[in-house]
Amino acid sequence: MFVLVTIAILLGLGLIFLLNRSSPPVAAEKAFYQPRDVEQQRLERLTPEQFERLCFLLLEQMGLSITGCHRNTHGEIDITAVNPQPIIGGSYIVRCVLIPPEVPINSTQIIALGDTVRAERASKGIFITTGFFSEEVRKLTEGPPIELLNGQRLRQLLEDHRISLA
């Protein structure tokens, strides 16, 4: 009996040690979108209409032809676009979500985009947000190809294509 208790205590201490060595997901998420500089604050203050125009402009600058747009009840914008280039081209579903900076995009939203991509038989899905993705999103491995653009990556693409937030 004494041996079992000793083994259980040692095993428990080992697990506590391992848990303390790993960083909590919330800290990792906050580190992912911190620090918030002036450009990030401008991105977060966009109105839904401004964000929609910004997404349209970025997609067009990247060589995609916009073929349709649908706004759903959750404030999300689904844009259908076509890449006319041979071999790498195809149809895309682009979901654009303007969210408060403290709310992460969770895996349910990414799975929903994947379902839409499958239903529309699109080549690829793109998820654009002004915020960040939760830790669980990185663990998704199944489904159609989906590219994730968080606020930092969105700002970088806007700079690369010389698109101003002002």
Rank of each mutant, 00 (worst) to 15 (best):
L148T: 06
F127V: 02
V97S: 10
L113W: 11
I99W: 06
L113E: 05
T129R: 06
L113M: 08
G143L: 10
G68H: 04
Q61T: 09
D78M: 15
A122L: 02
N106W: 11
L64Q: 08
L64T: 02
G114I: 06
E136W: 14
T116M: 14
T73Y: 12
T47N: 01
V137L: 11
F51V: 04
T130L: 07
F132K: 05
V94H: 04
L98R: 03
S91P: 00
L59M: 13
A122T: 08
I126L: 10
I105Y: 00
P104W: 01
M62I: 03
F51M: 05
R138F: 15
P104H: 05
E102Y: 12
R53E: 07
E60G: 00
H74Y: 12
G131L: 09
I146R: 03
E136S: 12
R71M: 08
N72L: 07
I111S: 09
L58P: 02
T80S: 14
I110Q: 03
P48L: 15
L64I: 04
G89R: 07
T80V: 13
L58W: 07
I66W: 03
L57W: 06
H74V: 11
S123L: 15
I77A: 09
I87K: 14
E135V: 08
G143R: 10
A81R: 06
K139F: 15
K139T: 10
L57H: 12
N106S: 11
N83R: 03
S91Y: 10
F133M: 01
L113I: 05
T116P: 00
G63E: 05
I99D: 00
E135G: 05
I79T: 05
P145H: 05
I146E: 02
M62H: 01
I105M: 04
L59V: 07
A119S: 14
T141W: 15
T73R: 15
I111F: 11
E136L: 12
P84G: 07
S123W: 09
P86G: 12
V94R: 06
R121L: 08
K124I: 13
T67A: 08
T108G: 07
Q50L: 06
V137H: 03
H70G: 02
E120G: 01
H74R: 15
A112T: 09
C55A: 15
G151I: 08
I111H: 08
N106D: 13
L140N: 01
I111M: 11
I105V: 09
P84N: 09
P84V: 13
I99Q: 13
S123F: 10
E135A: 10
R121S: 09
I128D: 01
I146H: 02
G68Q: 08
L59H: 02
S134C: 06
P145Y: 04
A112F: 02
E147R: 13
I87L: 14
R71E: 00
K139M: 12
L148I: 10
G89I: 09
I88F: 14
P101W: 04
L64W: 09
N72I: 11
S134G: 12
